[in-house]
Design a protein around this nucleic acid. Structure first.
Length: 814
RNA sequence: GCGGAAGUGGCGGAACUGGUAGACGCGCCAGACUUAGGAUCUGGUGGGGUAACCCGUCCGGGUUCGAGUCCCGGCUUUCGCACCA
């Protein structure tokens, strides 16, 4: 022990090493999954283990979840805080290609580095139940999930349009195409049609929408999902093609009220009816046009200005007017949305107006706004739909748009020409990838038996270790170059058959991982029903809002399907979801190109993990994020230094014994209340501020802090600064972990102020402050206030009105 | 274009259902202890004014005894989606 005036200094490195070691040895962070009495599943979106390692953005996110998890543990829950790695996917593959390493070697190294960094940050993660999506033990069950989709008729194969970079020889996602060229190499991107596997998520569109009402998620995330699903209420209208008895063109419209103004139809270039109906005179130009659009990349096509198109020469019957209208083909109509065909209403749709003007098609007004009538000229499309009356619409003239909408659909429905439908923006989920680094899709093609599932007993279909994993020109996966791998016996008839060589989308890996954590190690099933019932759905899910749509929607979908399959007794995976904010630095989002990435290692070394964690939670609202500044960490470190010193003072031999101060105890209980209330709301920055404020009160003046004043602060800071909390908890003479101790109780009697500062306003302006008993009445308060000079000065004559807010303010209106 | 979030000191940010704007922290200023201080401690710190006071939460209106907070109109930043019929 140190001599009399030399106090043991807070040495974060020593304290953190000691406790991380102790937690490991005593298995403090391992949850009793089977025996837990009061389970609480605190889930964090798992990271992609990049070669660059963990950056402060990741750590900010994880620490926020850790604080929440530790708090719940201190409040008596059996908390399970697992963490794994989302390690498959194009990101690792591209990095591997660039650096000339094999992803199978790269990933374990990255994971090791991540794990080291995460442990140094002191997360309460149960590492005994970690996983990586690249483990055969894991992706065996990803493949099993794929088979469940097939079993329920939700997986199918179809040709789909994709962006193809002829230089990188790979399929690109839409966001990888910038201005029509590949974002990586600048080569113009082509459109290709490839056979792809899809999941019928659109069958679940309405349920995915409706269930949003039942879950506790950030409103912004729910809104993003609603927009993504994009339900449009409208009608499907049938147009008979002249001279083709069986050819009908179905169009989707949200404006069936404008059908009298439909002067032409447009089919998407890919529409299957084009070949059948085009006249021989136009066949050449139509074919050329289709070839041209087929070459164009999807992004340019969707964003180009100006309209192009060709006439098919065929006509159709407008069921409302009985008139013949021409049928055109144009790339402004997309095959993926609605029916791939539209009715052109140039009078009331901007795009149709542009098209009709360009090609000289008739423009008819069927809605007249204020001051307009049936013959008012249209200089642009009139798209207002909440006011105005119908014109040029036969017996529907003079109705409002809303009335016309339902009446016209009813009328057309009588002859079967229309029906009301809801159309979704959501597309089916394309799950196949012509790449290497993913779980092989567990399907075998047999000439005799067709598409055959790999039997469950043969799972996993192992991803073979190949060196030529670079994608090529063929539009098929690199696995398709390995006959020794894909050539197999058909599981049904034994004949020579061929494996599917595509792998599945990374989003499938992450769509079910939360089901796996409690059952890690069980190689007989994807998830144990008893453990699943105990631990799921997830109590708290935290992650980035960049996954507001895809990941969160896909995992909801997969959960619903497994529920319908009878495998889960819930259909929503995450009871509560909160999106964390993002850390920026010098006003910009951290990125490698800006060179403002912060590696947490150096900060942890310099300041200690506890100070760093506390700083990250203090620099801004957890759901808003904040600006990272090196200098700021000194503030949280000082706070922990003072906490250390205070505990040292009260635990020293011969520490001065004195009565506690009522003011300090009052502030303590107010602090306990504040921290207890703020943490569940993720108000970490204000919780820390409250503790700092208390520390300032505690150290103010001459008196020595007392044990009862200091000790409760230790469990309060524990969620933020777990190592120092354990150390101080021990110094205070306690045994066991602070995380298995009780959270401090808030005592309302002790927290209550007897005297309050009452604000006195005159005409709404603050003129004075008086200290009065808490339960003072209006009359008493007024009497006291009048004695205040600065108030009295402004009160001339009898007040007109007095507003009294008990405990807060008195406003005298003169 | 559509949709979400947000604009508060030198900076990061507080402010419950309208009720003391600027908590807490950084930085800065002054002082104490020091050979020294980038350590620690104490005090100060929105702007103007000697002061009483006045002005201040993106801008312009409004409601109210009282508006950062509510309403109307506009501007800016930022993040999604985008020829979605």
């Amino acid at each position: 022990m140190n001599s009399e005036d030399e106090r043991p200094v807070y040495d974060p490195a020593a304290v953190e090493a000691k406790w991380q070691d102790a937690w490991r040895k005593q298995k403090t962070n391992e949850t009793d999954i089977a025996g837990a009495k009061n389970p609480f599943y605190a889930l964090m979106m798992f990271p992609y283990p990049s070669a660059e390692g963990l950056h402060v953005g990741n750590l900010f996110a994880f620490t926020g979840n850790d604080v929440y998890a530790r708090y719940h543990r201190q409040r008596g829950h059996d908390v399970f805080e697992p963490l794994g790695y989302d390690a498959f996917g194009i990101h690792s593959e591209n990095h591997a290609l660039k650096t000339g390493q094999h992803p199978a070697e790269l990933i374990p190294n990255n994971i090791r580095n991540f794990r080291r960094q995460l442990e140094s940050a002191g997360l309460m993660v149960d590492w005994s139940r970690s996983l990586s999506t690249t483990d055969p033990d894991y992706y065996k069950w990803t493949q099993w999930v794929f088979l469940q989709m097939m079993n329920r008729g939700l997986a199918y194969k179809k040709k789909g349009a994709v962006n193809w970079c002829p230089s990188d020889k790979t399929v690109l996602a839409n966001e990888q195409v910038v201005g029509g060229v590949c974002e990586r190499c600048g080569t113009p991107v082509e459109q290709r049609f490839l056979e792809q596997w899809f999941f019928r998520i659109t069958d679940y569109a309405q349920r995915l929408l409706d269930n949003l009402e039942t879950i506790d998620w950030s409103e912004s995330t729910k809104t993003a999902q609603r927009n993504w699903i994009g339900a449009s209420h409208g009608a499907e209208v049938d147009f008979a093609v002249d001279g083709h008895a069986n050819a009908h063109i179905k169009v989707f419209t949200t404006r069936p009220d404008t059908i009298f103004g439909a002067t032409y139809l447009v089919l998407a270039p890919e529409h299957p009816l084009v070949d059948e109906i085009m006249t021989s005179g136009e066949a050449d130009s139509v074919t050329k046009y289709r070839e041209r659009t087929a070459k164009q990349d999807l992004v340019t096509r969707k964003s180009s200005t100006g309209k192009t198109g060709v006439n098919t020469g065929a006509t159709a019957l407008n069921p409302a007017t009985g008139k013949q209208i021409p049928i055109w083909v144009s790339d402004y109509v997309l095959m993926e949305y609605g029916t791939g065909a539209i009715m052109g209403v140039p009078g009331h749709d901007d795009r149709d107006f542009e098209f009709a003007t360009q090609f000289g098609l008739p423009i008819v007004r069927v809605v007249a706004g204020e001051g307009q009538d049936a013959s008012s000229a249209l200089e642009a499309a009139y798209t207002e739909n909440d006011s105005g009356r119908m014109v040029n619409s036969g017996k529907f003239d003079n109705l409002t748009v809303a009335e016309a909408k339902s009446r016209i659909v009813e009328w057309l429905a009588e002859t079967g020409a229309a029906k009301a439908v809801i159309n979704y923006r959501l597309h089916d989920w394309c799950v196949s990838r012509q790449r290497y680094w993913g779980p092989p899709i567990p399907v075998i093609y047999c000439d005799k038996c067709g598409v055959v599932q790999v039997p469950e007993k043969d799972l996993p279909v192992l991803l073979p270790h190949i060196d030529d994993f670079k994608p090529d020109d063929s539009g098929v996966s690199p696995l398709a170059r390995h006959e020794e791998w894909y050539r197999v016996a058909c599981p049904e008839c034994g004949a020579s058959a061929r494996r599917e060589t595509d792998v599945s989308d990374t989003f499938l890996d992450s769509a079910w991982y939360f089901l796996r954590y409690p059952s890690v190690g069980d190689d007989t099933r994807a998830f144990d029903p008893v453990l699943t019932k105990k631990w799921l759905p997830v109590d708290s899910y935290i992650g980035g809002n960049e996954h507001a749509v895809l990941h969160l929607l896909y995992s909801r979908f997969v959960t619903m399907v497994l529920h319908d399959e009878g495998l889960l007794d819930f259909e929503e995976p995450y009871t509560r979801f909160r999106a964390h904010g993002h850390i920026i630095r010098e006003g910009a989002k951290m990125s490698k190109t800006k060179g403002n990435i912060v590696n947490p290692d150096e900060y942890i070394t310099k300041w200690g993990a506890d100070s760093f964690r506390t700083y990250l939670m203090f620099l801004g609202g957890y759901e808003e994020g904040g600006d990272f500044r090196d200098q700021g960490i000194s503030g949280t470190r000082r706070f922990l230094d003072r906490l250390w010193a205070s505990v040292d003072t009260v635990t020293r031999e011969g520490a001065e014994q004195a009565p506690t101060s009522p003011e300090v105890m009052r502030k303590l209980h107010q602090t306990i209340r504040k921290v207890t209330e703020d943490i569940p709301k993720l108000g970490y920055n204000t919780a820390i501020a409250a503790m700092m404020e208390y520390m300032n009160v505690l150290r103010k003046g001459e008196r020595t802090p007392q044990r009862e004043e200091v000790a409760p602060l230790v469990p309060l800071v524990a969620p933020f600064a777990p190592h120092i909390a354990e150390e101080l908890w021990e110094k205070l003479g306690n045994s066991g972990s602070v995380f298995d101790s009780a959270w401090p109780e808030f005592d309302a009697d002790l927290a209550r102020e007897d005297n309050i500062e009452l604000v006195v306003q005159v005409n709404g302006k603050v003129r004075g402050k008086v200290t009065v008993p808490r339960d003072i009445t209006q009359d008493e308060a007024f009497a006291v206030a009048q004695k205040d000079e600065s108030v009295a000065k402004f009160v001339v004559g009898a007040p007109k009105k007095i507003i009294f807010v008990p405990g807060r303010l008195l406003n005298i209106v003169v």
